[in-house]
Design a protein around this nucleic acid. Structure first.
Length: 450
RNA sequence: GGUCCGGUGGCAGAGUGGUGAUGUAGCGGACUGCAAAUCCGUGAAUGUGGGUUCGAUUCCCGCCCGGACCUCCA
């Protein structure tokens, strides 16, 4: 099998992927902070990483996929205080929703889904190491990472310390030695969630959580770390600083895979614009597979515009694939050449090229070649597509009983060559039942949802 | 202001130093009572000005336009 090539944010270049341990590829994805429903941007991230994980599983005997849940965070605390409930009560719903939404997109669950609140021992251990190494200091109940202590700080995101200071827009807290120093541990008042620590009752900073969870489950160094490109700075820069300083000689993640942000109907998603697309709401209007497909239509390192028109096109493309599959119901799974899709995916997850390959296979299937249908199914599986049968795809959700009579009447009308009546019924089926009826030879017909 | 990324047919979206994928939409045709689907055919693009080169959409520089990050953010 050929080699997977990935673009690595750390080196700003594409390079062949070389696992630390080919017997166990270890990957970490920054998961959600669970205070609300996931939005469509969260979904792109997970879908892209899902494609990567599926690919790695074909290439290597074992892949350990870790995706964390940040379940302690100031946004969560605020919700808890507003509602007068515990943070567990705030996070339980969003965690459940997250699992439901991601399953609806046919993304594979991670092998390990660690929660920050269950890793306080690791968090405290790393902070203690950093203090011992001279990379962190305690000040007014806080523990801060000292960016000046790390000569490599800023290299990952391509920033110099001067830029970081110049760019600091927020008033610098007086307990910070450097404007760029960031919090590892902060004190909690009794009304806030907290844990006992060598520095008193408090809670962790955000960045340290990922360092602790990846360390516990993947070790000091691992293969791939993913996330949205907005996390490059400061989150990932800080993770690297914490982990590399706590574990001298380690590299933290070798390869960094960052996806670009998503636009919605040409605009950045933001609460002020009121165009925050909640994934759950999108999934009520479109099949999960169409949403998934839509998110793969642009290369992951390219801005993707999530538009209604795009979603409609995604559905049409999937319609075409399912038709091609449906044409060969007895096609049996077997080894078929899949160079086109493999070449596309191995080249830095080129999903648009992979989709073009799918269309080539569909062309073959439509031309009557069963191998095309077999290849299409196999290639789709690689991308996490075709999770339902063509029948389910086209007819799922149709109330067959409700239209039975109309359909029968229309058959009779067509036999009687009463085309005015048959067209009227076709119209009613579409308008009142959302069903498209298509005629075949000898008064046969097929139905599908509009 | 600093750093970075991008501008490809109506729209979406790949790739490439040498006849510019793929989808969708359009147009003509076959098929159909008509549609739909499918098939055949067809028109349609590399922001702009320079440079390098036998040759640039691809490499380099300027300009214009758009976006991201620098602050919580996938």
């Amino acid at each position: 099998m050929s080699t997977l090539t990935l673009y690595n944010t750390r080196t700003r270049a594409k390079a062949p992927f070389m696992p630390i341990d080919p017997e166990n590829v270890r990957a970490y994805l920054c998961g959600p902070t669970v205070y609300d429903r996931a939005h469509i941007g969260n979904a792109r991230n997970v879908v892209i990483f899902d494609v990567l994980i599926r690919l790695l599983r074909r290439l290597y005997p074992k892949v350990t996929y870790v995706r964390n849940i940040t379940d302690v965070d100031d946004k969560i605390n605020i919700r808890a205080q507003e509602r007068g409930v515990s943070i567990e009560e705030v996070t339980a719903g969003p965690i459940r929703w997250y699992h439901e939404d991601m399953a609806a997109l046919y993304t594979l669950p991670p092998d390990i889904e660690p929660r920050a609140t269950a890793h306080m021992a690791e968090i405290i251990a790393i902070i203690e190491k950093l203090i011992r190494n001279g990379h962190a200091y305690e000040a007014q109940g806080h523990v801060l990472f000292s960016v000046a202590s790390d000569p490599d700080y800023g290299k990952f995101s391509g920033r110099t310390p001067d830029e970081l200071i110049a760019g600091a827009r927020v008033d610098v807290a007086d307990y910070k030695r450097d404007a760029g120093d960031f919090v590892l541990w902060k004190p909690s008042t009794p009304d806030l969630p907290g844990w006992e620590s060598p520095w008193g009752y408090g809670r962790p900073g955000w960045h340290i959580e990922c360092s602790a969870m990846s360390w516990r489950h993947l070790g000091e160094s691992f293969d791939i770390h993913g996330g949205g490109d907005d996390l490059i700075f400061p989150h990932h820069e800080n993770e690297i600083a914490q982990s590399c300083c706590a574990f001298p000689g380690s590299h933290y993640a070798n390869v960094w895979v960052h996806n670009r942000m998503l636009l919605v109907n040409g605009e950045k998603m933001s609460k002020s614009l009121g165009n925050f697309l909640v994934l759950h709401e999108v999934l009520e209007k479109a099949p999960g597979e169409a949403v998934r497909f839509m998110l793969m239509r642009a290369h992951y390192r390219q801005t993707l515009d999530f538009s209604d028109a795009g979603l409609a096109e995604a559905r049409k493309e999937l319609d075409r694939f399912y038709r091609a599959i449906q044409l060969h119901p007895n096609a049996r799974e077997r080894e078929v050449p899949l160079h086109l899709i493999w070449d596309a995916l191995l080249d830095d997850l080129n999903t648009p090229a992979a989709i073009a390959a799918l269309h080539k296979y569909a062309d073959l299937a439509f031309a009557g070649n069963e191998v095309g249908a077999v290849a299409l199914k196999a290639a789709g599986k690689l991308l996490g597509l075709f999770n339902v049968s063509p029948e389910e795809w086209f007819r799922g959700g149709i109330d067959e009983a409700a239209i039975e009579g109309l359909v029968a009447q229309r058959v009779l009308a067509r036999i009687a060559k009463d085309f005015a009546e048959s067209d009227r019924i076709r119209d009613v089926l579409l308008k009142d039942h959302g069903v498209i009826i298509e005629d075949g030879p000898k008064n046969s017909y097929t139905i599908r949802k509009a």
